[in-house]
Design a protein around this nucleic acid. Structure first.
Lengths: 234, 234
DNA sequence: CATTATTTGTAAAAAATTGTTAACAGGGGG
DNA sequence: CCCCCTGTTAACAATTTTTTACAAATAATG
């Protein structure tokens, strides 16, 4: 199922807790890197290969809350905070900063494992959506440089509106997007643009990407509702 | 890009907690449906439009753990369990069944809100990306990409209404679905649609999937009640 | 068991929505 | 300025959804 084991980083200054937890998770096949300070973990975290971060909230130097803020600002990594105290304030602040979970010490390691598993399931999907270069049906779409290339490597030139439309679709796969929402996403005008403009643009995108509305694989019309991006992202 | 409000279902038998929580979440713009038993929530949950489920673990009849097991088996909905006791066993069982979170009463509602927000962020990506493929009577039904292929590998193109109808059936096998419920699941209109529309759509689905109403294998008519999906899912 | 009422199957028309083509207007660059 | 490109609108064809009508099937009644 999963080709590589998930990579988990633990930041915990208490040696016993840290090594015990690391060993426990490793015994379940995870790749674990453990550190006693945030500063030492930094290097690994910036690699971009980490799936999940487990950090103590009380650390020397940079603490768990600060790490949470930093990580959440730049990645969709899963974050679980550990704390010695049953402190409501810490917990709420941590969660509001974007931590996914908060576990109080002493914790039951089987419980932590269950939380790790569930969170990894969620983040796997998330990562695919935040990528800047996406692949679907043989096409490569570089969101930053606005480049689309087909399976043969041929560049497909998109106009501004076509690009904006594709971008909205690609970041909302499987979601029916109504015309008003699509209009709002691609036009910068205030006044009401005719919703049929979307139909024409979808048709042009279909033509360029070779999608047949009678047997759609990329853009599926949802009669009476709008359009859905139904290509398989990988 | 302002997405539609997330739909949250609350199952909690204690009226005070339930209404307070529902009101609180609604005040943050969420669409909330609350029920006092799992059985009553069922109808809403099977529609497939729910993003997040908050369920008490101790309920009359079907309890939170049972709901968790059922939901996780067929959807990627986010699940938060509530409990009066600080019971390790319940918590661990709940998490291992696939609940995403476990909150003990009395809970801080601001904390719950933070957890709801974080979980919704994760599930939004998940729902769109995970591919749910079902098999029945030689047919393959990819719910995400809306594609149906027959035993020979031929693609069967479904219209929006046919797709929605098949989706509701497939997620509720063996359950008699009355016409009003089916109408509610497939229509995008406000005004009441004629229930006979369902008969026509069932007939078209039968035609496309080669099902004979006189010897039904997929869609069985329940005279005076509605229709049942009777294909063997595997 | 025959008759009647109710419900469902089917086909086809009507209404609503979308696909497609083409034309028009406005902006930017040569 | 003129030309080309893009976004937009309009018009008409095609498709999908819903309604309607009637035949067939099922259930209810005596």
């Amino acid at each position: 199922m999963s080709p590589r084991p998930a990579h988990i980083v633990i930041v915990e200054d208490e040696p016993v807790t840290r090594t015990a937890l690391a060993g426990y998770l490793e015994s379940f096949g995870y790749r674990v890197s453990d550190f006693d300070t945030a500063e030492k973990a930094e290097k690994t975290l910036t690699q971009g290969t980490v799936d999940l971060l487990i950090a103590d909230i009380n650390l020397q130097g940079k603490d768990g809350l600060e790490i949470t803020r930093e990580q959440r600002a730049r990645s969709e990594i899963g974050i679980i905070l550990l704390s010695g105290r049953t402190d409501d304030v810490d917990r709420i602040v941590g969660l509001e900063l974007g931590a996914d979970d908060y576990v109080c010490k002493p914790f039951n390691r089987r419980e932590l494992l269950a939380r790790v598993k569930n969170l990894l399931r969620r983040t796997a999907a998330m990562r695919a959506l935040t990528r800047r270069v996406l692949h679907f049906n043989g096409f490569t779409f570089d969101v930053g440089s606005r480049q689309v290339t087909d399976a043969a490597g041929q560049t497909i030139v998109l106009t501004r509106a076509e690009y904006e439309l594709l971008r909205v679709f690609v970041f909302n796969p499987g979601t029916v997007m109504d015309r008003d929402r699509l209009i709002a996403a691609i036009t910068h005008r205030q006044d009401g643009t005719n919703t049929r403009t979307i139909d024409v643009l979808v048709q042009r995108l279909r033509a360029k990407l070779g999608d047949d509305p009678k047997a759609p694989r990329i853009f599926t019309t949802s009669h009476g509702e709008g359009y859905v991006f139904t290509a398989l992202l990988d």
